[in-house]
């Protein structure tokens, strides 16, 4: 019985890894400039091609975008799984702590709060590092608030509700800023909220990657904690878990994961909510030592598919990634809800 289960996991993981590799390759292949398959291969292997521009496109644009997609997909999915488990709520996601709201506040203040002169000289001087830093500062402030709350509040549900309320309050503040800002600023901000994988440069990848890798390592090591949290915090405490420390560890890794993604790519929705459910359905287990890895791979896969769709293969246009992930993720969540009839049976 047990052996059978483990071989099933083995096959599933092998299949997922193969699919991620396959879609990674497709992600490199599709784009507004058509590069023949053979050349994609040879450029990857030797970094040389008859057309120098193709090498450039692959190395300067598509490869960074591929890595960004892999990192953000797995980061958001794993962060979502952690939040669903700790809050015991199937609709929780990486942003329930108010991370994206905080980031958007930071960006909104940067883009719309200052006079346009400062912003445009600032943005041209620092590239989009300015936006990245603003998003970082914004989400860090919100997280700091949530941490203080979580040290004082006993009931985890209270934290969930406070997180949502805080997020809404910030959104209201951001909409006031939007109301009073001029068109060009508004557009800069709106474009940021739509998310983008392609905007991450090679040098930014050097900051994004370690942030997410550290977050993922913390998550992957906390499988045992998440397992015992399935029964709720009271039970977990009675079985010897240091609940406040566990909250701290999980919030830290979630903020590293979701915070990094939001800072560099904008808020990307629904991957974090949908993927953990897909992982539970595929692996049919509640064991986080399996689920975390499954969620990580499925998250990367879903983001790759999203990115390929957003490239609109065969056309010159691209779609905003946030819209694509929402359109991919929402039907999955709806289907899961209808299939299970009630939300509480999802987790």
């Amino acid at each position: 019985m047990k052996v059978k289960v483990y071989t099933r996991y083995f096959y599933l993981f092998t299949l997922l890894i193969v699919l991620v590799l396959l879609f990674s390759f497709l992600d490199l292949y599709f784009g507004s400039v058509k590069i023949p398959l053979r050349d994609v291969f040879s450029i990857l292997l030797s970094a040389e091609s008859e057309k120098a521009s193709w090498v450039n496109i692959l190395y300067e644009f598509r490869l960074p975008k591929l890595f960004t997609a892999l990192l953000t997909g797995s980061a958001l999915a794993v962060a979502g799984l952690q939040m669903q488990t700790i809050f015991r709520n199937p609709l929780a996601g990486p942003y329930v702590l108010g991370i994206s709201a905080g980031a958007s506040l930071g960006v909104a203040i940067l883009v719309m709060g200052f006079s346009s002169v400062i912003v445009f000289t600032g943005i041209s001087f620092m590239g989009n590092w300015a936006i990245v830093s603003a998003a970082w500062i914004g989400s860090a402030l919100v997280l700091f608030l949530i941490f203080i709350i979580s040290l004082r509040v006993r009931d985890i549900m209270t934290i969930l509700i406070l997180g949502i309320l805080l997020g809404s309050a910030i959104a209201a503040f951001v909409s006031i800023l939007q109301y009073f800002s001029d068109e060009s600023m508004l557009k800069t901000f709106i474009v940021w909220t739509m998310g983008s994988l392609g905007g991450v440069t090679k040098s930014q990848l050097l900051v994004l990657t370690p942030g997410i890798i550290i977050g993922l390592i913390i998550s992957l090591l906390s499988g045992k904690i998440l397992n015992v949290l399935l029964l709720g915090e009271s039970y977990a405490a009675s079985m010897g878990l240091n609940v406040k420390l566990a909250r701290f560890v999980i919030f830290i890794s979630t903020s590293m994961l979701a915070g990094s993604v939001t800072a560099f790519c904008g808020p990307i929705g629904f991957v974090g909510i949908a993927v953990p459910h897909i992982a539970r359905m595929v692996f049919r287990t509640a064991n986080h030592n399996i689920l975390l890895w499954g969620t990580l791979l499925l998250g990367a896969l879903l983001m790759l598919i999203g990115d390929i769709i957003s490239q609109l293969p065969g056309s010159q246009n691209t779609l905003p990634i946030n819209a694509v992930t929402a359109l991919l993720g929402i039907p999955i969540v709806i289907w899961l809800i209808i299939k299970n009839q009630k939300l509480s049976s999802l987790m």
Binding site: G223, K224, V228, L230, L231, G232, L241, R280, A286, M347
Partner: peptide, 23 residues
């Protein structure tokens, strides 16, 4: 408690939390 996909034996095994290693 309501937990999906959790086998009885796995739930009972959670009682060993304080005896097992980090994994």
């Amino acid at each position: 408690t309501n937990v999906n996909n959790l086998k009885v034996i796995d739930l009972i095994s959670l009682g060993r939390f304080s005896y097992t290693n980090w994994q």
